[in-house]
């Protein structure tokens, strides 16, 4: 109970919680009018966007002590994986969508 009260009295947590709730509705709203043709690119695009987790990896990596090899190694891998998610995700989506726009010109 105390933690619950804390959540609502702590400004930072409260702010984050507001973002979460609004984002949930936004996500639902944004997606509900998608024609099924675009489901795959959309899934792929969304896949690239959750690559934003890379920011966490960068923070963790950038804070690691220079002699903390475990954190450095794991962080290094995490940043690589995150980059793959972001870059690969956007490029794959772009390739899919390129095919849609090409034929539009005709």
């Amino acid at each position: 109970m105390e933690t619950l009260i804390n959540i609502f009295t702590d400004q930072a947590t409260y702010r984050l919680l507001t973002i979460v709730i609004l984002s949930i509705f936004l996500g639902i709203e944004v997606i509900s009018h998608v024609p099924s043709v675009l489901h795959t690119p959309l899934m792929s695009g969304a896949n690239a966007i959750h690559g934003v987790v890379i920011i966490g990896a960068i923070i963790v990596m950038g804070q690691a002590k220079t002699d903390d090899y475990l954190a450095l190694t794991l962080g290094f891998i995490a940043v690589i994986l995150g980059t793959l998610n972001v870059v690969g995700g956007f490029v794959v989506t772009d390739r899919m969508l390129e095919m849609f726009s090409k034929k539009k010109k005709k």
């Binding site: 973002i19 984002s23 959309l42 959750h50 923070i59």
Partner: peptide, 24 residues
């Protein structure tokens, strides 16, 4: 991760995908 680092962009990006993905 957004909660962990108090990071709004991770939070919006993550939750957007989370809810949109669930609807999909």
């Amino acid at each position: 991760g957004g909660f962990l680092y108090n990071n709004p962009v991770m939070l919006t990006g993550g939750i957007l995908v989370g809810s949109a993905g669930t609807i999909l």
